[in-house]
Every structure is written in C-alpha cells, then in structure tokens.
C-alpha cells in the first residue's frame, strides 16, 4: 500500500440534489495532495457531479442544492464568504470535450494569466512555454503558437486545454473524462503527461475507462447510484476489492 500523503480535500457528508433528485448521497472521503485520484463507475453514478462540486461549476446550473461540506486546505468552499472566482483559480478544470477558445494557441494558454492582469509580453511568453511543456505539447506546437487552436487535432486541443488550466498554477487539477473524445494514441500521451503532472499538482480524474484508472491513478473511488461504494489504493481496489459490487464492476459483470 502506497503511503498516504496529507489530504488536501476533505469531503464531509456531501448530499447533492438536482431539483428533488438526490444525485450524491452522503459522500465522505479525503483526496491526497500531489497524487492522482480517479473516480470510476457506470454512467450517471454521480462521479462527474462530484468533480464539478470541487470547483463549484455546479453553481452555473439552476435549481441545484448542496448539503454537507467540502474543505480544501481546511477552508469550506461552500462558505458564503468564499470567492468563487478565486476558488476556480486555485482549482483548475479540464472538460470531457476539448473546448479551446476560438483564438490562437498562445492566446488560449495565456487567457487566464491575462485575466489575472499580467501584461508583460516576456512573462506571458514564459508562462505559455512552461504550461505547454508540462502539457507535453511544446515540441509539437512551438512553431505554430499563433495558429488558431481550432486547427490542431483533438488530442492537441485537449492538451491546450490542460495547458490553459495549469497556466493558472492551480493547486488542484480536475479532469472530467478528458480522454473520452480522443483516440488511443492521444490518450496515451495525456496519461504520460498526467503522471508527470502529479509531481507538482494534485490531480483528480473522472474516467469511464477502468484500465486508465488502473494505469495512472494512485487512489480510486468507485461510485454507483450516487454513492461512494469503495475508496482505496488503486492496486488494492483492483486486485482485492472489498465489496461485492466493486468486484462485479471491475470484472465486467455489469456496467
């Protein structure tokens, strides 16, 4: 069993409602710092809902309600005094489908830093190079920085989105099924990159793909019907699942 580092996120008794429908039921667990945590489970089990709670993206949806609390570094992010934009600067997010802005690659990556008020060209150039290097894209696009981000391939677009998120130097990077729209080669590139990323960032990834979770993550949570069925070290969970439901799922008996 891997050594658990300090938890950076504590999720305590979390209930989440879409209107009257209870989507997450009594979720309780911690996410460790500078590790990769994966959420797996069948469609509609609430794993995407949970990850979107971590940077309050769910606030954009009308008619939702949340109970319980999520603490990041001990601070309740649903506290009324919490500044949502500040929170999102600390907790970056990458979505299921690549969603680059219809701007150049360069402008996409420095979008966040520009909003922070950085105007100096040399500094922005540095940030762009660093972020793209970390997203394992620099060598591929360094001569095409001023090409529209919509003209590159899907896998590259997704890595631009990752670079865009880490250009903000967040503490946590959330990835919501980042590879579901990509082919295996692009997926492999992003997986390699994720392993590099965890040296500096806490990574949370939602995935449909159990192999992916097994390959990249340190910890895995298995969700079903809005409940956290099992949460453990990844190797442990995949080799010696403690719950029957987990075993059925990972052995492919359903889902």
């Amino acid at each position: 069993m891997k050594k658990k580092s300090e938890p950076i996120v504590n999720i305590i008794d979390l209930n989440f409602y879409y209107g009257d429908t209870l989507a997450l039921k009594g979720i309780n667990f911690d996410i460790s710092e500078k590790k990769i945590t994966a959420f797996i489970g069948p469609s509609g089990c609430g794993k995407s809902t949970l990850i979107r709670c971590l940077n309050r993206m769910n606030d954009l949806i009308e008619n939702v309600r949340i109970e319980g609390c999520i603490k990041i570094k001990g601070q309740d992010i649903y506290d009324p005094s919490m500044n949502i934009t500040e929170l999102r600067k600390r907790v970056g997010m990458v979505f299921q489908k690549p969603n680059p802005f219809p701007k150049t690659i360069y402008e996409n990556v420095v979008y966040g830093p520009r909003v922070l008020g950085i105007k100096k060209k040399s500094l922005l150039d540095d940030i762009c190079e660093k972020a793209l290097t970390r997203a394992a894209l620099w060598t591929e696009v360094k001569d095409r920085l001023h090409v529209s981000a919509l003209e590159i391939s899907g896998g590259q677009q997704q890595r631009v989105c990752i670079a865009r998120a880490i250009a903000m130097e967040p503490e946590i990077v959330l990835l919501d099924e980042p590879c579901s729209a990509l082919d295996p080669i692009a997926t492999a590139k992003i997986e390699d990159m994720l392993v590099e990323l965890k040296k500096d960032y806490t990574v949370v990834i939602v995935t449909h793909n159990m192999q992916q979770a097994a390959r990249v993550s340190d910890f895995t949570g298995f969700f079903m019907m809005g409940e956290l069925v099992e949460y453990d070290d990844t190797t442990e969970l995949f080799t010696k699942p403690k719950k029957k439901k987990t075993e059925d799922y990972i052995t492919g008996r359903f889902g």
Binding site: P100, G112, M168
Partner: peptide
C-alpha cells in the same frame, strides 16, 4: 455560443463579465 466555451472560461476563474467580453 456553446456552453462548453463559457464553462472553459469560468473554470479559469473569470467573472461573468470577463467571459462575456473576451469569449
């Protein structure tokens, strides 16, 4: 304008106005 584009901008910690104006 696709919702995904707006969310992409919000996720970077921009306010509603910044998202509107820039994206």
């Amino acid at each position: 304008v696709p919702r995904a584009i707006r969310e992409g901008s919000y996720a970077l910690g921009t306010t509603k106005f910044e998202t509107l104006w820039k994206v």
